[in-house]
């Protein structure tokens, strides 16, 4: 295993970088899109509500691979060029944001109605109340399930391998087919994923503890 690592170390690290970068981008944007979709789902505006409902139900219920292949194959055919990394990351963002929307919506709904009323009664608009009063409480509640979504996201980023996204899984496949040492290669790849996901779950449980103390 050490031989494999010393021979192909740079390739593993290269793949790790792409996986990390793709995960961070997808995490950031799916958190933003997911939050908006959650708020839209609870909006009084019928158009926004339907839009969010359709978005969530559609992308949550089709395979991630279809979204990614669509970005990789169909989008360049009719609209603009996307490489493997880009289509993988965009697909991952679209897919994950649907799940994050559901998670955050559930969080918002556990905040008592009295909080919205208190905010409105102080002269806040409903969107200000959402930002200053409801969302901070909702996020605190959904940290554990949100952590699950983030971990799933990192693992799902291995989908990039299907579209030559240069990620960890892709590099692993290349190394395995070059060396025929599948056993050790995939163990090393797995360990690299663990470096990311274990830190992420550690970070999330720390955040949970930190916020729990403050209240």
């Amino acid at each position: 295993m050490l031989v494999l690592l010393s021979n192909y170390g740079p390739s593993f690290v290269e793949g790790f970088k792409y996986t990390l970068f793709s995960s961070i981008l997808a995490l950031f944007f799916s958190l933003i899109i997911g939050t908006f979709m959650a708020i839209f789902q609870l909006s009084k505006n019928k158009f926004l509500r339907s839009l969010a409902k359709i978005y969530v139900e559609f992308f949550r219920n089709i395979p991630l691979l279809i979204i990614v292949m669509f970005c990789y194959v169909v989008v360049p055919l009719y609209w603009f060029q996307l490489d493997g990394f880009q289509s993988g990351t965009i697909g991952l963002t679209i897919y994950t944001s649907a799940f994050i929307a559901e998670t955050i919506r559930a969080g918002i709904q556990t905040v008592p109605a009295g909080q919205m009323e208190a905010g409105l009664s102080s002269g806040f608009t409903s969107s200000q109340t959402m930002v200053y009063i409801i969302l901070p409480q909702a996020f605190k509640i959904v940290i554990p399930p949100l952590g699950n979504q983030f971990i799933n996201l990192v693992k799902n980023s291995s989908i990039l391998a299907m579209v030559a996204g240069m990620d960890l899984m892709y590099q692993g496949d290349l190394i395995a087919s070059e060396t025929f040492n599948t056993f050790e290669t995939y163990i090393i790849v797995g360990l690299f994923y663990l470096i990311l996901t274990l830190q992420l779950s550690y970070l999330m449980s720390n955040l949970e503890k930190k916020w729990a103390i403050r209240e």
């Binding site: 009295g114 909080q115 208190a118 009063i133 409480q137 605190k140």
Partner: peptide, 9 residues
Amino acid sequence: FQHFNLYPH
């Protein structure tokens, strides 16, 4: 309000 509705955070 009857139930105060202070902001817990």
